Each structure stands twice: as structure tokens, then as C-alpha cells.
Simulated scan of single mutants.
Amino acid sequence: MTLYETLEVSPQASPSVIRAAYRCLAQHHHPDKHPNSDAAGQRLAQINFAYSVLADPVKRRRQDVRP
């Protein structure tokens, strides 16, 4: 799964779309909303990582040039 797929956005998504998708997914998958689910915490960790890369223009460019 790519980082774009993790955030459910297109590779051409603007920074504002990426931020909105992150906020929506983070809120939906937050462990406080799913206290008995280990999967929610794991999913949120994936979402956080994807956002940390795609929100940074330099990291995003490096990610985009990978084969």
C-alpha cells in the first residue's frame, strides 16, 4: 500500500487535500473512539506516518521519485 493509498488521496492531491484527508482519517481511526481495538492504533500509526511524509514537500518529492 502506498502512502497515498493510506491517506486515500491521489498522488496529485494538493497539500490542503492531504491535510483534510489526514484529519478525517485520524479522527475516524483514533484509539479513543475504539478503546478495545489494537487495529485502530496500528491504523492511526500508518496514517500518521503517511502524513508525516506527504505533508513535508522535501520528503514527498523523495517519496514520489522512488521506483
Score class of each variant (00 low, 15 high):
P35C: 07
P35V: 06
P15F: 03
I18P: 07
R62C: 01
E5V: 00
D56T: 05
Y4S: 06
H28V: 13
V53M: 08
L44Q: 06
V17F: 00
H30L: 05
K33L: 14
A13W: 15
Y22R: 00
P57Y: 03
I47K: 03
L44E: 10
D38E: 14
V9W: 02
A45I: 07
T2H: 12
L7D: 02
V53I: 15
H34A: 11
H29S: 09
D32L: 09
R43P: 08
M1A: 13
T2Q: 11
T6R: 03
S52F: 07
S16H: 11
A45R: 13
D64I: 09
S37F: 11
A39C: 05
L3D: 15
D32I: 10
C24S: 06
L3M: 15
Q12I: 05
Q46K: 01
D32M: 01
G41W: 06
I47T: 11
E8F: 04
A13T: 13
H34E: 09
R61K: 12
K33F: 14
Q42F: 14
H28L: 07
R62Y: 06
D32C: 04
R19V: 06
L44F: 08
I47A: 08
P15R: 00
P15K: 00
R66W: 06
K33Q: 14
R62A: 08
P67D: 14
A13N: 10
A39L: 11
V58A: 08
K59R: 04
Q46H: 01
E8I: 12
P35R: 02
L25M: 13
S10E: 11
H34P: 14
Q63K: 02
H28F: 12
N48R: 15
R23D: 10
Y4I: 07
N36Y: 03
H28R: 15
R23P: 00
K59Y: 01
A21H: 05
C24Q: 04
P15G: 04
S14I: 07
D32K: 05
H28Y: 14
L25C: 12
V17M: 00
P31F: 05
P35K: 02
T2K: 10
P15A: 00
I18L: 11
R43V: 14
N36C: 00
R60C: 09
A21F: 05
P67I: 13
A13G: 08
D56G: 05
S52N: 08
R19S: 08
I18N: 07
E8C: 07
P31M: 09
A45M: 13
V9L: 02
T6L: 04
R61V: 08
V9E: 03
V58D: 05
Q12R: 15
E8P: 04
V65S: 06
L7F: 03
C24E: 10
N36W: 00
G41S: 12
V53K: 01
Q46Y: 01
Y51Q: 03
A55T: 11
G41Y: 03
H28K: 12
P67L: 13
H30I: 02
V17P: 00
C24H: 07
D38W: 12
S16C: 03
A26Y: 07
S10P: 10
P11I: 10
Y4M: 09
